[in-house]
């Protein structure tokens, strides 16, 4: 990417598709330390504000007949609650605030990232890896606490022929440890790719002859990205539910 950038420098065609992901301090020009207030801080904070505006502000009247915004809050609640209950059963409902936190954060961060010139926090592995690791560790700890050594039966596929079981156990074990990797990279990768592609199309807009096509392409990509924003949040959440189910009921 760096070579491309330097090659394009000087001409009107400049591609900096990854610049939108740069972390920089909000105040001053210092280095980015651990506690520096950066654009990451700002957009994470805006995600909190968005959640408050979505879930708390519209429900403050506690209307029996909901307003539109209250309906949205209730729908979000019902959507995740039902998903969790369908997948994990009644025992899973205990972890609803946790799952709801993940979903609301990801969906708000994704959609805030769709605002032009914004910073997309969920496009960073530094954000999605801790999220996925948290789920992985929670599920693993919960599995052993709830089932003791019985949690290991998750890897011992009792429905398979006995001779195949050790091989399957190895495969299951590998797939289990790959979970946080795929879980985090799926989210960050999708979001990052979409945003970078939009930026590339935007770079082409500098050429007058191509710019109408470029604008169309950006519009189309934007629509796709809106879809991806929601779907990736949904996928992350539903996978969290599935992993939780494994912890609660490890027997296939």
């Amino acid at each position: 990417m760096a070579t491309e950038t330097t090659a394009a420098e000087g001409s009107s065609l400049v591609f900096h598709p990854m610049d939108q992901f740069i972390v920089k301090p909000l105040f001053g020009d210092g280095a980015v330390g651990m506690f520096t207030i950066t654009n990451v801080t700002l957009w994470l904070f805006l995600a909190i504000v968005a959640i408050v505006l979505l879930l708390i502000w519209p429900t403050s009247k506690r209307a029996i007949v909901p307003t539109r915004m209250q309906s949205v809050a209730e729908l979000a609640y019902g959507f995740i609650y039902k998903m969790l209950e369908d997948i994990c059963g009644k025992e899973g409902v205990k972890y609803f605030p946790y799952v709801m936190t993940l979903f609301m954060f990801i969906v708000c961060a994704n959609f805030l990232g769709m605002i032009p010139m914004s910073f997309t926090t969920t496009s960073h592995f530094a954000v999605t890896i801790p999220l996925a690791l948290a789920v992985f560790l929670t599920v693993t700890v919960l599995g052993f606490v709830k089932n003791g050594a019985g949690f290991l039966s998750l890897f011992w596929v009792s429905s398979a022929p006995l001779a195949l079981r050790p091989i399957l156990a190895i495969i299951e074990l590998i797939s289990y440890f790959v979970r946080p990797v795929s879980h985090s990279i799926r989210l960050a990768g999708n979001v990052m790719a979409g945003h970078a592609v939009i930026k590339v199309f935007a770079g082409f807009a500098a050429i007058a002859a191509i710019s109408p096509v470029s604008v169309l392409a950006i519009t189309a990509m934007y629509g796709l990205e809106v879809l991806v924003s929601f779907i990736q949040a949904y996928v992350f959440t539903i996978l969290t539910c599935v992993y939780l189910k494994d912890a609660l009921h490890p027997h296939h």
Binding site: A2, M18, F21, V23, V32, G33, T38, V40, S123, A126
Partner: peptide, 15 residues
């Protein structure tokens, strides 16, 4: 950005 900003480990602690 040089390469992918996502892989800049200097920024990880902050994020």
């Amino acid at each position: 950005a040089i390469g992918m900003p996502q892989l800049c480990f200097d920024w990880f602690p902050n994020q």
